[in-house]
């Protein structure tokens, strides 16, 4: 049975501006040799605000070793402030995933996404409040079999990218992050 080693619990301060550029909102270096026959598991709470009327479709990407392992383009995720004065189009995303190392080769990692949960939730007083939804079958939505050299330092990162200007700065951040190592 593996152990659990908590590698990171943080409240990242990086924010996304009024920009459509891909912006890193979380990063953590996984030291070489840390992930051998175990697995990395992570949880992220991400929130964002769209200050324009109508919906946006931002993309959240989880990256490991410089490559995108999971990209989540969330259709109609953020309803803008079309609800009138005082409207607040804040939404949340909850990501829960895993990067599994391949047992047969302790210097390579196989990446796959285990679970994630997307929440759509307009903020108080928006007039367009939508209850958060939990997917009924969130497992295994994305799998990557790319081999990664885990014997050297590799970065785990999360990026956020709007598909149109949110007209507010800052417009998104990772509220809380948690990364752990599961070891045999």
């Amino acid at each position: 049975m593996p152990d659990v080693r908590v590698l990171d619990v943080s409240a990242p301060t990086a924010t996304v501006g009024d920009s459509t550029s891909e912006t890193t909102i979380f990063t953590k270096t996984i030291a070489g040799g840390t992930l051998t026959t175990g697995a990395l598991r992570f949880r992220f709470h991400i929130k964002c605000r769209n200050n324009t009327a109508g919906s946006k479709t931002p993309t959240v990407r989880v990256k490991y070793a410089g490559s995108t392992r999971g990209a989540f383009a969330v259709s109609a995720w953020v309803e803008g402030n079309a609800g009138g004065a005082g409207a607040r189009g804040t939404s949340y995303l909850y990501l829960n995933g895993i990067i599994q190392s391949v047992v047969v080769n302790t210097t390579q990692a196989q990446c796959y996404w285990w679970k994630y949960h997307q929440l759509t939730y307009d903020q108080y007083d928006s007039g367009v409040a939508t209850p958060p939804a939990i997917p009924t079958n969130p497992d295994n939505i994305n799998t990557s079999t790319s081999a990664v050299n885990t014997s050297v330092d590799q970065a785990l990162a999360v990026t956020f990218q709007w598909d149109g200007s949110p007209s507010v700065d800052p417009s998104a951040q990772c509220v809380a992050a948690y990364v752990e190592l599961l070891q045999p």
Binding site: A11, R88, T90, S171, A176
Partner: peptide, 11 residues
């Protein structure tokens, strides 16, 4: 952890 956001997210 607290993410106190009375700013831009608060309207």
């Amino acid at each position: 952890v607290i993410a106190s956001t009375p700013g831009i997210y608060g309207g």
